[in-house]
């Protein structure tokens, strides 16, 4: 059976869903960040597949920007996690409940 573009989109959809589920069920901030990276990568796969559909490079250029943004986001989030860990000795989002109401 020949591989269709849709196969790639389905893989992208599955990876996106796995990442989303991870963001919802996991409690460790670092692991949540990894799940978010996975979601961005799923979008990248869809972009590359679509760039083949339209036979142009715009989708692949977009992936470049997505990777850069993901890297910047990861750096900032890891910095915040380190700063919070110094205060609280935890990276568990369930324990971050100082504010209620």
């Amino acid at each position: 059976m020949e591989i269709q573009i849709a196969h790639y989109l389905v893989v992208a959809g599955i990876l996106f869903a796995v990442g989303l589920t991870g963001v919802v069920v996991r409690r460790n901030a670092i692991v949540i960040l990894m799940c978010l990276e996975l979601m961005l990568n799923a979008a990248n796969l869809a972009l590359v597949a679509f760039s083949r559909v339209h036979r142009d490079m715009q989708g692949q250029v977009f992936v470049f920007f997505a990777i850069t943004v993901a890297a910047a986001e990861a750096a900032v989030m890891l910095a915040i996690i380190i700063a919070v860990y110094r205060q609280r000795q935890t990276v568990n989002v369930d324990e971050m409940d100082l504010m209620q109401g």
């Binding site: 949540i32 979601m39 961005l40 979008a43 869809a46 679509f50 339209h54 971050m96």
Partner: peptide
């Protein structure tokens, strides 16, 4: 506040990117 904001904000970015990919598609 920073951690909560960045988790939700990055999630929003992932949704935006995925949606944009399909609009481009």
């Amino acid at each position: 506040a920073g951690i909560k904001y960045i988790i939700v904000g990055a999630l929003a970015a992932a949704f935006m990117l995925f949606g944009t990919a399909f609009i481009y598609g």
